[in-house]
Structures are given as structure tokens and as C-alpha cells.
């Protein structure tokens, strides 16, 4: 029979899952506002301004608009796949968070109880994230195919080819991190980077920065952001795989994209920038969760910053970078890392 402890743990886990899901669900709202604001300021404009002070209520207005918009399913579309494709895109983006730790433990000040800031301490955490993260491509492929439109189909095709090409480089980068930290467990990976900022994987010279560059370029391509968002390139494909989508289903795709961006930011921090460890030992009075959030926010800002700095690559350039630069580079880098670890 289940004991009281087990029941308590299940309840705690359920509460944690619910809270985390709510947070992730709400996250795209501030992120869309932030992205438009940053876009505006980089282009010497103001960005959203009229709804609320500094346009801060703009995402709510957008959400209401998307909710009440007519949900159009094209006549010749594959109805069932068209309807479930946005969900297929969204579910893996959330499922990834089962393995992502947001910190070690957190002591609630008044009660004194300790709460674990992760859902599961998975032995194969890094592999799980790679595997589940790769699944969200199905939403895009199936959505593109089911729309029965040439732009959507081309977007889906580009997306699948891009995903296959860059997943290799990203997995190699993760393998490099696993070699440096000696574990597939994300908590262990963070623990191995404790101490000062000199023990971060990013500063494991000379291979650390190379792994980080490979990881960053590869994951930007995998989450379909500029400069590699060829599968939703409005210049040539009108809107890529979600051309035919509108209303709520469209917003599911956008939700998946923003959550993926947050995931990649978190992973960059965990893999290369020491997770919730403080950069200097004397700064460790600041709680770890604050360090973690700060680093993640920097990366989120960085992705938006890059988006409004670089132009979009051509498709052949994308494939060339993937196959002719990143993959050979990562192979060489694995060799060097192995030699350094002997």
C-alpha cells in the first residue's frame, strides 16, 4: 500500500507540475511584449505603446484577439492532422521541462521546509532533452503537410531537413559537455561547474567556447529563429508551415516557439555557464535562483538581440554551415576534448 510519504510526494509533484505549466503557459506573453519592445528600440522606434503604460497590456489584447478569431480549416486540408499538429508542436516543448532543473533546493524562509526545484532527477537528462526536444518538429512537418498548400509544404520540408542537419551538431555539443562534466544528469553537470566562473564549461579552454558556439548556432537553427528561420521565411514562403493557420492554433505554434527559446536559454546556462552557481565565491550570498534567472534572462535577451542584428541566411548557406562547418568542427573538437581529458 502507498505510504503517507509517497502520497505527500505525489501531491507535491502534482503541485509543482501545475505551477510550472502555468508559468510556461504565461511566459510567451511577457516575451512577445519584450521582443516587440526590443525590436522597436533597436530600430529606434518605441514598440507597443498604446495599450497600458508602455504597451504592457498589449499581449493580453493580442491573446484576446487570437482567442476570438475565426478558426479556419482549409477545405482541402487533412482535417485531423491539421487540428492536432499545433498540439504535437506544443506538447514536447512542455515535456522537456520534466528534466530541466531550475535550481538545487530552495529553503522556504518561514517554514524552513526544503523544496526541490526540479521535477525529476533523471539519469539520462541530457539525452531526454535532446530526444523530446527533437519531437516538436513533427508539429511543423505535419502541420505543413496537412495544410495542403505549397508554401506550408515547402516550409515543412525545409523544417525537417534543417532539423535533421542541425540536431547532429547540437547532440555533438551536448556530448562535449557530457565529456567535460562526466555525467548525463543535469544536476551533476551544474555541480561539476561549481566554484568560481573559471570552472564553467564555457571557459574550459580551448574547447569550451567552440562547443558553446556550435551549441548556440545549432540550437538557434533548431528552434527556427532568425537568422535560420528558413521554414517560416515570410519573404519566400509567405509564412512557412503555419501559413494556413489562424487564431488559437496559430498561437499554439508561437507558444511552442517561445517556450523552445526559453528552453535553449536555460540549457545554455546549465551546460556552459554554470547553472545557478555564482561567478565569484564572495557573491554567493545572492540566492542561486537569482543567478540562474539572471543568466537565463540574458540569453533570452541575447536571442532577441541577434534576431534584430543579423539578416536571414540563404537555404544553401544554412545547409553548408550545418554539414560542412559545424559537424566536422564538432568531430575535431570531440577528438581534442578526449585528448585533453586523458
Amino acid at each position: 500500500m502507498p505510504t503517507l510519504d509517497l502520497i505527500l510526494e505525489v501531491i507535491l509533484l502534482t503541485v509543482k507540475v501545475a505551477v510550472l505549466t502555468q508559468i510556461i503557459f504565461a511566459l510567451p506573453m511577457p516575451l512577445t511584449w519584450l521582443e516587440r519592445k526590443i525590436a522597436g528600440h533597436i530600430q529606434v522606434r518605441l514598440g507597443p505603446w498604446r495599450v497600458g503604460p508602455h504597451g504592457i497590456l498589449q499581449p493580453f489584447a493580442d491573446a484576446i484577439k487570437l482567442l476570438f478569431k475565426e478558426d479556419i480549416v482549409p477545405d482541402k486540408a487533412d482535417k485531423i492532422l491539421f487540428k492536432i499538429a499545433p498540439l504535437i508542436a506544443m506538447v514536447p516543448a512542455f515535456a522537456v521541462f520534466a528534466a530541466i532543473p531550475l535550481g538545487d533546493t530552495f529553503k522556504i524562509p518561514v517554514i524552513g521546509a526544503e523544496v526541490k526545484l526540479y521535477l525529476s532527477d533523471m539519469n539520462v537528462g541530457a539525452l531526454y532533452i535532446l530526444a523530446i526536444g527533437g519531437l516538436s518538429v513533427y508539429g511543423m512537418i505535419l502541420g505543413g503537410w496537412a495544410s495542403n498548400s505549397k508554401y506550408a509544404l515547402l516550409g515543412g520540408l525545409r523544417c525537417s531537413a534543417q532539423m535533421i542537419s542541425y540536431e547532429i551538431a547540437v547532440s555533438f555539443a551536448v556530448i562535449g559537455v557530457v565529456m567535460l562534466s562526466n555525467s548525463l544528469n543535469l544536476l551533476e553537470i551544474v555541480k561539476s561547474q561549481g566554484g568560481s566562473f573559471l570552472s564553467w564549461n564555457f571557459l574550459y579552454l580551448p574547447v569550451g567556447p567552440v562547443w558553446f558556439a556550435i551549441f548556440l548556432i545549432g540550437s538557434v537553427a533548431e528552434i527556427n529563429r532568425i537568422p535560420f528561420d528558413l521554414s517560416e521565411d515570410e519573404g519566400t514562403l509567405s509564412s512557412g508551415y503555419h501559413t494556413e493557420y489562424s487564431g488559437m492554433r496559430f498561437s499554439f505554434f508561437m507558444l511552442a516557439e517561445y517556450v523552445a527559446m526559453v528552453t535553449v536559454s536555460i540549457l545554455s546556462v546549465i551546460f556552459f555557464f554554470g547553472g545557478w552557481n555564482a561567478p565569484f565565491a564572495f557573491l554567493s550570498f545572492i540566492p542561486p535562483i537569482a543567478w540562474f534567472m539572471g543568466k537565463v534572462c540574458f540569453f533570452i535577451y541575447f536571442f532577441m538581440w541577434v534576431r534584430f542584428t543579423l539578416p536571414r541566411y540563404r537555404y544553401d548557406q544554412l545547409m553548408k554551415i550545418g554539414w560542412k562547418i559545424l559537424i566536422p568542427l564538432s568531430l575535431v573538437n570531440i577528438l581534442i576534448t578526449g585528448l585533453m581529458l586523458i
Partner: peptide
């Protein structure tokens, strides 16, 4: 060393913190 990329980032960061002309 991605110098061109960094140069671009610096320029856009400069615009980001500059005053909007709207």
C-alpha cells in the same frame, strides 16, 4: 572570432539604449 558579428551586435546594442525618435 566572429568579429563582424560582434561589431553588428555592438551597433544594435547602441541603438537599443539610444533614445527613440518616434
Amino acid at each position: 572570432l566572429f568579429t563582424d558579428f560582434v561589431k553588428g551586435l555592438v551597433i544594435t546594442l547602441g541603438y537599443n539604449v539610444s533614445r527613440s525618435i518616434t
